[in-house]
């Protein structure tokens, strides 16, 4: 039994699901969602490669290669969609999913966290692009961002559990609680943002906006720990 310090499988799976959810929130049509599901299966196959599992999960080089093909195929499909807006919604999210999957596998233990952070960056860029080009409503953007950050958090949690406890230890309860709490908190922030939006945050005079921005940027800079 090759036991290792890799990220724990449950947290990895939850992170991948959350990143798929984030992309799906941005990409509502059926075509896109099919591509997302295919990519999720592909990334799942890639992420389980090289490990030993008790469950009958397909492993081995062939399955990993198949998974990679599925992911690349989904990304290609996303690029060639008829409506370029739909591509923008889909492709960064898929790339983010793939990067999180590589971080969870991990491709390289030392870079596991970096891959996962890169996945978050890709998903965030995707949300920004949708926001710019589509002038989308706030709910989609808020939901997708919250899900993306939650995916990153759960993936990093799995990485740290794997490093400290190895993959053969019993860690399910902790992973589930952590995922649930972060997701719930993310949902709360989304609701708060929506409430702010509803209460006429767009009608501010320029000076107020300027002061607000100055204060907000300063506070955010101070928030860096």
């Amino acid at each position: 039994m090759s036991v290792s310090h890799r990220p724990t499988p449950l947290a990895g799976a939850l992170a991948l699901v959350l990143s798929a959810v984030s992309t799906a929130i941005l990409a509502p049509t059926l075509d896109q969602r099919v591509a997302i599901v295919i990519a999720l299966i592909g990334v799942g196959l890639v992420a389980t490669g090289g490990r030993d599992f008790d469950l009958p999960v397909p492993q081995g080089r062939l399955w990993t290669a198949l998974g990679a093909v599925l992911v690349l195929g989904a990304i290609l499909r996303g690029e060639t969609l008829a409506d370029p807006l739909q591509s923008i919604e889909l492709v960064p999210g898929l790339v983010g999913m793939a990067l999180v999957g590589l971080g969870v596998r991990p491709l390289r233990q030392r870079f596991a966290r970096r891959f996962v952070s890169a996945g978050l960056a890709a998903m965030v860029v995707g949300v920004a692009l949708v926001g710019i080009f589509e002038a989308a409503g706030p709910l989609r953007l808020l939901g997708a961002t919250a899900a993306a950050i939650a995916a990153w958090d759960v993936a990093e949690h799995g990485i740290s559990l794997g490093e400290q406890l190895r993959t053969d230890a019993e860690t399910r309860a902790v992973e589930l609680l952590h995922t649930g709490t972060t997701s719930a908190y993310g949902a709360v922030t989304v609701v708060v943002a929506l409430v702010i939006y509803e209460n006429g945050a767009t009608g501010l005079p320029l000076s107020a906006l300027a002061l607000l921005l100055a204060a907000a940027i300063t506070l955010m800079a101070l928030l860096y720990r």
Partner: peptide, 27 residues
């Protein structure tokens, strides 16, 4: 110093939201 800056930032944030206060600035 960090606490002072946070306080200043929060106060500025609040002032921005109060109607009419921000217009005093030479924007």
């Amino acid at each position: 110093g960090w606490a002072v800056l946070v306080a200043v930032g929060v106060v500025a944030f609040g002032l921005a939201l109060l109607p009419g206060v921000a217009t005093l600035l030479p924007v």
